[in-house]
Amino acid sequence: MAGLDIFLQNVANGVLIGGVYALIGIGLTLVFGVMRTINFAHGDFVVLGMYSAVLFNALLGWDPYLSLLLAMPIGFFAGVIVERFILSRVIDAPPESALLATLGISLIIGNTILLTFGGEPRSVQVSYASSTLSIAGVNVSMVLLLAGIATVIMIGALYTLLNRTEVGRAIRGTAENRLGAELVGIDTRRIHSIVFGLGVMLAVMAGVTLIPLLFATPTNTGAVFTLKAFVVTVLGGLGNVGAAIAGGILLGVVEVLGASYFMSEYREAYGLIAFLLILLFRPEGLFGRTVKRV
């Protein structure tokens, strides 16, 4: 393989991995944009999605993509319930209260999974787990491609929801100015519930689409995904859903190229350094509008 071919292969992998990161990141971006809450449980919801796929596969023999049909609505309602009974009560308290609440939720999710499934890593074995598609000499992982397609569909749907519907208008209004939104008659409590529901739904979806490729453990994996979601979110711009995809892809490419051409043990650091640089020079994110700092 010539150097250029390898480079193209690496870029392709970076973009695809980035798609996965974007998928993990959108939910967090959405929740942060509207509720101004750093959701520490986000990664645990991703893990919850993975385990739901494991469960449906073990009980019903379903393919992960089929289990999306059930997992997504369940995720949405779980999110609504968590928001209604927990987060809505702390939304007016100091901002760190919500952060703490999500930490508590994260511990509860991880350890409930530990008690039900045990600590052993779980995964779902599908026939296409290692299949590749060869496009112009570049091998593309089937699972990543599917996850990428899911990301694009999801972002399209979300974009339509936010920009073309009444609920979307209300969500955007709440994100811009909660008090103002309330003054024009928007039930911001309801909007918060919907947004958190959507956030969890997206996290669960990310988990389900990733399980053919990865593995889930109850307490370790969640934190990793949360961290990735933070990075993606800041790279793209906190609260900017469309830019999350760009943030994710940027992170994927930076990590993969860093690991391919420099020291692989610092892989995580390449993304974090990019994250810091963006925070410092463009705190509104690469693609965010220039707004005043929060």
């Binding site: 750093i38 933070f230 906190l238 810091l276 705190p283 700092r293 929060v294």
Partner: peptide, 9 residues
Amino acid sequence: LRGPYFSLS
């Protein structure tokens, strides 16, 4: 950076 941005950094 302010608020959550600082925490994330």
